[in-house]
Design a binder for these strands. Structure first.
Lengths: 211, 211, 211, 211
DNA sequence: AAGTAAACGAGACGGTACGTCGGGTCTTTTC
DNA sequence: GAAAAGACCCGACGTACCGTCTCGTTTACTT
């Protein structure tokens, strides 16, 4: 239907102004107060220009975050996996706090109701980071820090899942001690997994509990 | 200034009509399309009546879900913990699917941006279910199915966390096999936890060193 | 349909409180800001009680004014017609000023759009005063101050009309000098009218104007 | 704060549709039933567009009437003043009848409670017509039909005043005979006025003393 | 004096319209 | 030909009063 505009003629200045305004307003007043009108006014840009290049305010914020993130370094690798996980999880927690000012949380909220945005969010921001995480875990496997056959998808679930459960229900982000225990539990679960083939559909032996 | 209305005079018929209309519309068109005007029209009720008793459309949906849930039974207890967890987690997954039609997901999205609603959501819907879950787990401890000193808060994190991480980033809900592995890993992590006092800040025993 | 309430059981205290509140609010904030809800709240009375006895807020204000007016004396009669007219017209002007605070002006505004109220207004407030005016004029005729065959309906038009023309278009109420000239012109018109029978459809001789 | 909109960009089509809808609805159902929402719906226009250009529904109707009136001709001048006055007064009466359907009456009612609207009404609709009337009277003075020193402000009072007194109290508009007598009385009052300097503060000459 | 029917205060209710906000589209003008 | 400026239609917002309608609670007339 609508012919996509020619990207060659795009004004880089406008693009930057829009992304910066979006982030600034988001931090100042929270994602919920963010409006296309507000971004346009604050960036000295016409609403049309925003609509020409982005499908929604979520897409603008996503791109703004993506721009920030491209400059971000790789997953930390000090050689000590526990330390690196703790560093990285702490960084994620920082991005999600405080919930009512965090651009990422706003994006998550909108993505929950907007499948297109969710797709973009996953592909551009999340998937690359999950890949980095798995790479780091694979290095840990090579170095014998975790089992070579540990299921890395489950590692993602166990390590990152708790943050989002706590986020969506405002259960409070884990403090340092809780974070340590989470990491410990997750790694132990990965390391004590039965060898492939011997999957027990029911229960692993409870090593200590009986009598 | 604004006096809270007198609950004795409240019309139960209107209350019911509103909650039913809210749920119906939510299922029909998705939480994102839900409006106070739409609920009022569909319930044959004036907007004022909704605003008189609820602070936001999220609060209406929350109460509607709460009403549904009060009739809901306890946490399943067949005696087999793994079976019960699987049953319960499957039920939760059903409540969250499909994401763009689920009232719960809509509520979560709004709660992410609305602290008051988040508070209500946690206290009225989530906390009671977490308590039920912990009770079930405690019974399992008494019956020797899991370690008596297993940390039940971490159990919540490990078992429920993954669902919400997958939900918010549209990573796909776990299928039956994945669910089994998640439960297995979580329980193993809880059962292999070091005895209190012997917390190792660094690493669980290497998997191969187990026997 | 609706049975009219029994006036014997009517609460005089409520009636008074309502009328006083109506007048007070009208003076404080203007007729335009007046609401049934406001009157009820201010009078410490239920809305139902107002609706039981009056059909509209205009009717309330009308009765309030009527109550005031019953205590008012007759048309002035000092023996000097011009003085009395000036006194009376000045009083009317006072009742209509300032336009945005005057209860009478508010009533007039509402009556313009509400035929029932207009009828009540005319019958209860205006007609009696017109009758008093005509009585006074008839006495003046008997005393030879104005022509015995002067048309008193036209006297009403000429003396009171100008006030309302000026009122509705905010042309400014006549000051003392203008008032004197208006009275003079009106009386002269009445006194110089051709005797009955000699009505000239066109023009009276212009006594002075020619050359 | 609120920047006035740029008139150059204004949509003439919307303006016309709004004014026409306003007049149409006013005639169909009366000014009292007129609402901004109704005008917007009937004109196929957004409420915002109305609020952007007019401060109140009265202002819309006023402009609609003004638009009509700009095409209206001058005060009639057949050479016979009495005929012309009768023609003009009859036209005014037509504009004010029936009171509950007349846009002008609705406007008057609102202007009584809204000083801004009253100001606009006077300046844009009434003052020009009063000026035209005075011009016609001045021509009559030049032609010797009325006294050269007749007070034209008082002429306005005597000729137009009665209509509005009768209007606001629903006393009934003058019929043809009454109209003739009013005109006759008014002209006689103007023509018999004492010469400047000989103002009698008290009484006009008694009628019988005339010749 | 007790019984009872009404008018009463309180205020919730279904409505209608208010005036505002932001979304997304469109046109006009400028660079 | 992209961009700024911003008017436009649209739909929902949350509020204010409307006039109606229960609720208990006085109040004042029966009996």
């Amino acid at each position: 239907m609508s012919v996509p505009p020619n990207p060659h003629r795009r004004s880089e200045a406008s693009r930057r102004a829009i992304l910066e305004a979006a982030l600034r307003l988001c931090i100042e007043s929270g994602y919920g107060q963010l409006t296309i009108e507000g971004i346009a006014a604050s960036a000295g840009v016409s609403k049309k220009t925003i609509y020409r290049w982005w499908p929604s305010k979520g897409a603008v914020v996503l791109e703004a975050l993506d721009d920030l993130a491209t400059t971000v370094v790789d997953y930390p690798d000090t050689g000590d996996l526990v330390v690196d996980l703790r560093t990285q999880l702490t960084a994620v927690i920082a991005l999600l706090s405080p919930a009512d000012r965090s651009a990422v949380v706003g994006l998550i909220a909108e993505a929950l109701q907007n499948a297109d945005l969710a797709h973009e969010l996953r592909e551009r921001l999340i998937a690359p980071r999950i890949a980095q995480f798995k790479e780091r875990m694979r290095r840990a496997q090579l170095e014998g820090q975790i089992a070579t056959d540990a299921d890395l998808d489950i590692a993602v679930d166990l390590l990152y899942g708790p943050l989002y459960h706590r986020l969506v229900f405002h259960l409070g982000m884990p403090d340092s001690r809780q974070l340590g225990e989470l990491i410990e539990h997750a790694l132990r679960a990965l390391n004590t997994a039965p060898r492939s083939g011997e999957t027990s559909a029911t229960m692993p032996p409870a090593p200590h509990a009986r009598h």
